[in-house]
Design a protein around this nucleic acid. Sequence first.
DNA 1: TGATAATATCGGTTATTCCCGATATACCAA
DNA 2: TTGGTATATCGGGAATAACCGATATTATCA
Lengths: 100, 100
Amino acid sequence: MKQLEIFKALSNKTRLEILQWLKDPEASFPEQAHVSGFEIGVCVGEIQRKAGLTQSTVSEYLSILQRAGLVTSTRVGQWTYYKRNDIAFDELSKIIQSDI
Amino acid sequence: MKQLEIFKALSNKTRLEILQWLKDPEASFPEQAHVSGFEIGVCVGEIQRKAGLTQSTVSEYLSILQRAGLVTSTRVGQWTYYKRNDIAFDELSKIIQSDI
DNA sequence: TGATAATATCGGTTATTCCCGATATACCAA
DNA sequence: TTGGTATATCGGGAATAACCGATATTATCA
């Protein structure tokens, strides 16, 4: 049951906020030093700073969002960039109309 | 934060199933003896039988769904009928596109 | 090679959720 | 009134999630 995993991922205040930030990274994060723009996503450190939780917690939250398919990740050097997966939200929106 | 309450309500296997049943009651439940059709919803007892959990658990689950706005309830005599709130799902579908 | 930085994973405490049985409340019928 | 049926609420044990600090992993750079 995939949608259960998605809703569990969404049922946490911080994880919802992270997704909202990733929806508009330009407005939510300072320019990243090691890469130009937010095309590949936002690195864990920036998200952690903004969330105000420990590194381990934020890292775990991001992997929960990824397992649910709500974000994708790209490793570049020592950084991992997380990006909102727009397609997943389109699909979820449809599931809510047709399945539930 | 209303959407958090909604996603928490949706992050349980049985509650998701109940919503799916209420989406198409004719297909999911036997004819109710005390009322004609499913216009006002499905009574707790029918939902409980189908869920296979105790009465108290199902009653609590239904009130969680109701507090989240996902179902409405109507009391008629000694029965309470629960019905899917279509509008809430339309709104949720939009929230997923625009907010998160 | 070794030092440092970014991220992931592991082990554990505390808070929350799941789900139950027991009991309370509301309604109806005799 | 008394008894029976439908639902709601309360108290609690067990399972899961939240969140942390410590440590492991991976990459960079001198």
